[in-house]
């Protein structure tokens, strides 16, 4: 993956200096491939948000490099970052953060317009995307009239409207009930697998593990544990590769939640590993 996706090398962020210096992120390296969903978890104050903000070009790292699709972001001047944020990143926030004065369609269209699309094209793009996300009948609604799940779908549409390479989601399910949380998770998964976007999620919500390809545990500014996830091909449950039951078919390794699923999948040809 030399030029595609996100590559983070030896990233460090220090705040303050001398006795008051705090190292929020310490020598972190990470690669996220197109179509991959990476979940970053960790206790409060572990540096998750600082890392996310650096990935999104909202905070300059003290050391290290961030490269997105071959472009080194960390070396860019402040003046160039707004354009990069508009075109290369899609942000999804915990509080949805929609613009209350604009209707649903304009909330999405404004991001396209800011990126240089004409009004007509921006509106058409926004309408198509929102319709695709199941909000075709809500285009002219005020955000206030939407449910939490709908608001988050509008925010996702806004994040996607400029076809960014990387989606950064900050606690995207924190303000949603279980059903809307799942809906949002499914959408994020689809964005990665169907649209080929890299998705980095920062969250405390362990349910998101189900859609993640990898779960990174950040503590004291460092990745302490990396969990590779897989989906059971029978029951579609998300399982940790390290702890899962595995089986091989036609030379490929599969991960299962339990022996029953493995046996069902492999049948008579079962080759337990």
């Amino acid at each position: 993956m030399p030029n595609a996706g996100l590559r983070v090398s030896h990233l460090t962020k220090r705040f303050g200096s001398g006795d008051t210096e705090v190292v929020a992120v310490r020598d972190v390296s990470l690669e996220v491939a197109p179509g991959e969903v990476v979940l970053i978890m960790g206790p409060s104050g572990s540096g998750k948000s600082t890392l996310l903000l650096m990935l999104g070009g909202l905070l300059k790292p003290t050391e290290g490099t961030i490269t997105l699709d071959g472009l080194e972001l960390s070396s860019l001047s402040e003046n160039r970052l707004p354009d990069i944020r508009l075109h290369s990143f899609g942000f999804i926030f915990q509080d949805f953060n929609l613009l209350s004065a604009l209707n649903v369609q304009d909330n999405v269209a404004i991001a396209a317009e800011l990126a240089g699309a004409g009004r007509k094209a921006a509106v058409a793009k926004a309408a198509a995307l929102l319709t695709e996300l199941g909000l075709g009948r809500r285009l002219h609604f005020s955000p206030e009239k939407l449910s939490g799940g709908e608001k988050q779908r509008v925010a996702i549409a806004r994040a996607l409207v400029n076809n960014p390479a990387l989606i950064l989601a900050d606690e995207p399910t924190a303000n949603l009930d279980s059903s809307h949380g799942h809906e949002t998770m499914r959408l994020l998964r689809d964005i990665a697998s169907e649209r080929g976007r890299s998705v980095v999620i920062v969250s405390h919500d362990a349910r998101i593990k189900d859609i993640a390809d990898r779960v990174l545990w950040l503590e004291d500014g460092q990745f302490k544990r990396v969990v590779e996830m897989a989906t059971d091909p029978v029951c579609r449950m998300s399982v940790e590769r390290e702890l899962a039951v595995t089986g091989v078919r036609d030379g490929e390794t599969y991960y299962f939640c339990a022996n029953g699923c493995r046996d069902e999948f492999l049948g008579a040809k079962a080759v337990p590993v």
Binding site: I84, F91, N97
Partner: peptide, 17 residues
């Protein structure tokens, strides 16, 4: 609308706009 302007800045809106 401070928060909304903050969001606009985050997604890439320049100060002059």
């Amino acid at each position: 609308r401070r928060k909304e302007y903050g969001v606009l800045k985050a997604i890439g809106t320049r100060n002059r706009l």
